[in-house]
Design a protein around this nucleic acid. Structure first.
Lengths: 340, 340
DNA sequence: ATTGGTGCCGCAAACGTTTGCGGGGCGCAA
DNA sequence: TTGCGCCCCGCAAACGTTTGCGGCACCAAT
C-alpha cells in the first residue's frame, strides 16, 4: 500500500525484465503467449495502471486535447464540448477544458497551462482580442478555431455562414410583409456579430429596401443588454412589428422582456430566435445551429491532422482550411404575416 | 525549429547548469538576481514552456482534476463544470472532462484514462450502476461524488436535499388547494429519483392526505418520456389540477406537451418546474438548484483534501463527509390556487 | 595562516515508460 | 562438432524535470 504499482514492481514479482513486462502489456509479437498471460494476470491482481505522463514523455507526444471556450453553461458551447469529448474518447484522447469568459488574461493563462501539459492540439473559440502571447502558444500545436474567426490566428476555421443565417431569417419576415424589423445583435468586435448584421442588411438590400438602422441595437451578448435594447426599441414612435435576435442569450433577454411587457407573440410582434436550447418556448421560429456537426467535423479534422503531423514533417504551408456549415431556419408559430 | 526548448537548451545557451536554470525560473532564493534575470530573458526569447508532465513525474503528483459527468449539454451539469473549472484554474489545476452519458462501460473506460493521467482527484456524478472496476479506479485518488449518492462509493457527497425540495413544491400546491397533483419524475435507480418521490409523498403525509399514486409517473429522465407520461395522465378520468416535475428534462417535456395540447398555465393546470435554465418560460414557478454553490463547495473541498493528502499520510479513516445543500422554490405565475 | 561562514552554483539520481540493439538458448542440417 | 536461424528476452539510454548534497570562491574573524 501507499505505493502505485509500476512496471518495475511487476517485473520483480514475475522475475522478468521491465522491458518484457512492457512489451507483454502492449501485446508485442515477440513475447510468448504464455508470458503475456502471466503478465496480464499479475497486472490485473496488482491493479496496475499505466502512467500516461511517463509514456507521453518517452514517446514525445501526449493524448491530450485542449478545448478553450468562453463558457460552458451556454447550451451551444455545451453541445460543442460534448461532441468534442466524444470524438476524443473515441480516438483515445482526453479533453482538457478551459473556460475563458472572454477574458484575454484568463485565456492566456489557461492556454499556457495547456501548452505546459503538451496537448496534442487545440480547439479554440477565441476571445475577441487575445493577448499577443496567446497566439504564440497556440501555434505550438495543431489548432482549429471554431465559430469566431480571427485573422491573426492562422488556423483552420469551422463555423457558420452567419450572413446566410440572418439573411434567411430576415427575408422570412420581409416575405410576411414586415418592414419595421428590429435587430438585437452582438457587437462588431467578433466576426459573428459582423456577419450577422451584414446578413440582416443583405436581406433588405436584396428586396430593394433600405436598412432600418434605427431599429438595430448592438451590444454585449447578455440577456440584460437585450432586455434593455428591446425596451428602448419599443419605446420608439415607430414600433417594430418583428424582431430578429442575433444570439441565444440575446434571444432569451428579448423573450423575457416581452413576457414582462405582456406582449403576445406573434399577435403584437413576431420573433425569430437564435439557437436551439431544448427548452425554448416550443413555438419559437428560430435559427437552428449545427453545433454538433461542427464539433464532430472539427474534432475529426484536428485528430487527423495530429496523426498526420506525427508522420510527415510540418506541411503547414497548406492554405488555411475553412469549413462553412449552414444553419437552418425552423419555422414555428412565433412569426406571422404582419397585421394578423 | 522543429524542437521544443528545454532546460538543457537554455543551460547550454547561457553556459549554466540545468539545475541553475531550473532554480532561477522557480525563483529559488540561492540564485543571484543577476542570473535569474539572464535566465528569464533567455527563456522568454526562446519561448520556453515548462513540461508539466516531466514535472509531475518527478514530483510524484500532477495538477490535473478529473470531472466525470453524464452530460454537459445539460444546463445544470454545464454550471457544475464551469464552477469546477474556475476552482481549478484559480488553484493552478487543469480539468479533464469525461462525459459518460450514464453508460457504465464508457464510464469505466474514461475513469481508467483519467487514472492513467494520474489525476490528483476526481469529481464524479456517477452513473446509476458503475462497473465494479470503476470503484477501484476512483479509490486511487481523493474523490467526491456530486448530486447522486452511491453507497458503494465511499466518497464524500455534495448534493441537494431532494426530499425537502419536492416536499416544498408539493406543499405549495397543497396550500393552494390542489389535491389531484401529478408527479413526473425520474426512476428509482438513482438516489435523486428516490429522494424526490419521497418528498412528494411526505407533503401529502404531512397534510394528512393519502398519496395519489395513480398520478405518479417515473421513468428515464428524458423529454419524450415526460411528454408521454403527462399525456397518459391527462387522459385519465380524474385529470390532475397541477403537476410537479422531478427533473429539468422532464419539465421541458411536460411544458412541451402542454403547449402542443394548448393548455393554459395556470388556468388549466398549475406547473412546478425543476432547475434554472436561464431561458425557462419566465413565468415558471420552479425548484431552483444551487448548482454553482455545489460546484464551488465540492471543488474547494477536494482541493483542500489534495493539499492535505500531500502532507499527512492518508487520514481516510475520517467519517464520510456529506454536505447537503438546499434548493429553493421560486414562486412565479405558473401556479395558482385551484379553480381560479 | 588557518578556520568558519556565506553566497552561488553544478553533479547526479530519480520519476515510469518505450524501444533499438544485442545476446542466450534451442532446434536442425551439414 | 560446427554453423545457421529463430524465438524470447534483457540492457541501457532517453524523455525533461526537481532537488539533496557537495563544492568552489570569497570575506571576515581568530
Amino acid at each position: 500500500m501507499g505505493h502505485e504499482t509500476t512496471l518495475k514492481d511487476l517485473a520483480r514479482a514475475l522475475d522478468l525484465s521491465i522491458s518484457t513486462v512492457a512489451r507483454a502489456l502492449s501485446d508485442h509479437p515477440q513475447i510468448s503467449e504464455q508470458t503475456k498471460a502471466r503478465v496480464r494476470a499479475a497486472a490485473s491482481v496488482s491493479g496496475y495502471v499505466a502512467h500516461s505522463a511517463a509514456r507521453a514523455m518517452r514517446r514525445g507526444h501526449s493524448t491530450l486535447i485542449g478545448l478553450i471556450i468562453p463558457d460552458v453553461e451556454n447550451e451551444f458551447y455545451g453541445t460543442l464540448a460534448k461532441g468534442l469529448a466524444q470524438c476524443c474518447d473515441q480516438a483515445g484522447f482526453q479533453m482538457l477544458l478551459a473556460i475563458t469568459e472572454d477574458d484575454p488574461v484568463s485565456e492566456e493563462r489557461q492556454v499556457r497551462a495547456l501548452s505546459e501539459a503538451r496537448v496534442a492540439g487545440f480547439v479554440v473559440v477565441p476571445s475577441p482580442k487575445p493577448l499577443r502571447a496567446t497566439f504564440g502558444l497556440l501555434a505550438r500545436g495543431p489548432c482549429v478555431q471554431l465559430i469566431r474567426r480571427l485573422d491573426e490566428l492562422a488556423a483552420p476555421w469551422f463555423g457558420i455562414d452567419e450572413e446566410a443565417a440572418l439573411r434567411e431569417a430576415t427575408g422570412h419576415l420581409l416575405g410576411q410583409g414586415h418592414r419595421r424589423i428590429a435587430y438585437v445583435g452582438g457587437s462588431l468586435d467578433l466576426s459573428t456579430g459582423r456577419g450577422r448584421l451584414r446578413g440582416f442588411e443583405q436581406a433588405f438590400e436584396a428586396a430593394g429596401l433600405s436598412v432600418p438602422h434605427h431599429l438595430v441595437r448592438l451590444g454585449r451578448p447578455r440577456r440584460d443588454f437585450a432586455s434593455d435594447a428591446f425596451s428602448s426599441l419599443w419605446g420608439q414612435p415607430e414600433q417594430p412589428t418583428a424582431v430578429v435576435t442575433g444570439g441565444a442569450r440575446l434571444c432569451a433577454g428579448v423573450l423575457e422582456v416581452l413576457g414582462r411587457m405582456g406582449l403576445k407573440i406573434p399577435a403584437d410582434i413576431s420573433v425569430v430566435g437564435f439557437g436551439d436550447a431544448p427548452w425554448w418556448y416550443t413555438a419559437l421560429t428560430t435559427i437552428s445551429l449545427p453545433a454538433r456537426e461542427i464539433a464532430i467535423a472539427s474534432g475529426e479534422f484536428l485528430l487527423r491532422r495530429i496523426r498526420d503531423g506525427r508522420r510527415e514533417a510540418d506541411s503547414q504551408n497548406t492554405p488555411v482550411y475553412q469549413a462553412i456549415h449552414r444553419s437552418s431556419l425552423v419555422l414555428r408559430a412565433s412569426t406571422a404575416p404582419v397585421g394578423t
